[in-house]
Design a protein around this nucleic acid. Structure first.
Length: 191
DNA sequence: CTCTGGATTGAC
DNA sequence: TCAATCCAGAGG
């Protein structure tokens, strides 16, 4: 097993969003291990209207206000969940949404968790898709990402360029350049 | 309590 | 282009 990628360094959320690119997300379950390389992220800042935490702490977003390095998993559109990494110091509600992964290990298990999917490219190329493929559930909301069973593993990013654009699927703060992805990577979400 | 819309996805 | 599906958050 590799070195854990810890978020405790307290770097700005924007910087962490790009630094998370290339890191591996690992989930160990009784069914087996699943690993995906992070290829697309989005930053959500405390003063940003699109951020769940921008209007203060609520029952749903409270883990965003906790210490960095924890998982914020929320329910959306009546049927999906999205996975975030809490990035700011305690008291500041910020996080990075993981939008896409390149499947690396446990690919058979990912297909098993997503029976209708035919192509590897479609397994984790969207925030709700990777949650399903990795076996992440609402029970993971609030857990530490610095330890098993769900954690980030350090990995060197190759020469691939990081592309910065505006975020997807929001109605406010649409112009902010808070979306990051690996150029030419075939596992990123639409657009 | 009621109402509205959502950090999405996949079918048509 | 749009339905599925249901809860969080805002307002009364």
């Amino acid at each position: 097993m590799g070195v854990i990628f810890k978020i405790s360094s307290c770097k700005p959320t924007i910087e962490l969003a790009s630094r998370l690119l290339g890191q591996h997300l690992v989930h160990e379950t009784k069914e087996g291990i699943s690993v995906g390389r992070i290829v697309e992220t989005e930053a959500y800042l405390s003063d940003d209207p699109a951020c769940h935490a921008s209007r203060g702490m609520t029952k749903r977003n409270q883990v965003m206000f906790g210490p960095p390095g924890y998982a914020y998993v929320y329910f959306v559109y009546g049927m999906y969940y999205c996975f975030n990494v809490v990035t700011a110091p305690e008291g500041v509600g910020e996080a990075v949404l993981i939008r896409a992964l390149e499947p690396l290990e446990g690919i058979d298990l990912m297909f098993k968790r997503r029976p209708k999917i035919k192509r590897v490219e479609d397994l984790c190329n969207g925030p709700a898709k990777l949650v399903l493929a990795m076996g992440i559930t609402k029970e993971h909301n609030g857990i530490s990402l610095n330890q098993t069973p769900l954690f980030l593993e350090k990995n060197h990013l190759r020469k691939k360029e990081i592309v910065t654009t505006s975020r997807i699927g929001i109605s406010e703060g649409i112009h902010f350049p808070y979306r990051f992805y690996l150029k030419d990577n075939r596992f990123i979400s639409r657009k």
